[in-house]
């Protein structure tokens, strides 16, 4: 497929998804904002006011980066998982793309870009809402941007794996509930890993959310439980692995074709 045609194909997949995201905004944008307001209110303002400082910052400042990231990863994941699965399972309109000459890497790019757009937009909205509770410092804006892109991309890729491979509606609800949610809550959104017993620290180090939260928190607050270069290395490795899995699934048709 020539480069210009490839671009058109990518743009078509992305445009269609973005139009859908904005058309159903009460489903795509509102829930995360409402949840975040509750988190800021309960954990940040009510409980947080009774807690001491964390590394020299108030508790609400400490949790803002994690809560923004929570919105980014859940929205990026849900978007690609549900969009692809619905096209595959309910109306079977994924065939429109599968019969076309669109190569697998363009399909991955289009769907993942859609997930990233939703994840980043919702993340920015949550960040905007956080201003009403506490003004978050922005120590390293480029680091924030880098981790915003990495986190939305990784979880859009993971959502796509889920959407391609899921064989029933349960298949796309089980992963967010039993895998994604525990990873988020045990990834250091609400606490510093330094406060954990040694045995739980080991589990945390294999949790990708831990590296995302800490990199993101470094961007805002200037400190982290783990070095920035290690976080970036782990996340780039994870991105590469997820791209390879998606490419393999689409190339072979595993989970898609009989």
């Amino acid at each position: 497929m020539p480069l210009k045609s490839t671009w058109t194909s990518f743009y078509t997949i992305l445009r269609k998804d973005v139009v859908r995201i904005f058309r159903i905004w009460p489903q795509t944008f509102l829930p995360s904002i409402v949840t975040s307001v509750l988190y800021f209110l309960v954990f940040g303002t009510i409980i947080g006011s009774q807690l001491g400082d964390f590394n020299g910052v108030s508790y609400i400042h400490f949790i803002i980066p994690g809560l923004v990231l929570l919105a980014v990863v859940t929205n990026a994941f849900t978007n690609t998982a549900s969009t692809f699965f619905q096209a595959k399972f309910f109306s079977r309109n994924i065939d429109e793309i599968l019969v076309s000459p669109t190569p697998p890497w363009v399909i991955i790019g289009g769907f993942v870009a859609g997930g990233m757009v939703r994840g980043i937009l919702v993340g920015l909205l949550v960040l905007a809402v956080s201003v009403f509770f506490a003004l978050p410092p922005l120590m390293h804006p480029f680091v924030i941007l880098l981790f915003l892109i990495l986190s939305s991309m990784i979880f859009a890729l993971a959502g796509l794996v889920n959407g391609i491979y899921a064989k029933s509606f349960d298949g796309i609800t089980i992963i967010p509930t039993f895998v994604l949610t525990p990873l988020i809550y045990l990834g250091g959104v609400f606490y510093s890993v330094a406060s954990l017993p040694a045995i739980f620290k080991g589990f945390t180090l294999v949790n990708p959310i831990f590296y995302l939260v800490n990199g993101f928190r470094y961007g805002f607050l200037g400190f982290s439980d783990v070095s920035l270069s290690l976080s970036i290395s782990v996340l780039l490795l994870l991105t590469t692995i997820l791209i390879a899995i998606n490419w393999y699934l689409l190339r072979t048709g595993l989970g898609l074709k009989q």
């Binding site: 497929m1 020539p2 045609s5 194909s9 078509t12 269609k16 429109e96 669109t102």
Partner: peptide, 14 residues
């Protein structure tokens, strides 16, 4: 209209 135009897009037609 959108179904047809999007299908053209998957074939690289602007």
């Amino acid at each position: 209209f959108d179904i047809i135009v999007n299908q053209a897009g998957y074939y690289g037609i602007p």
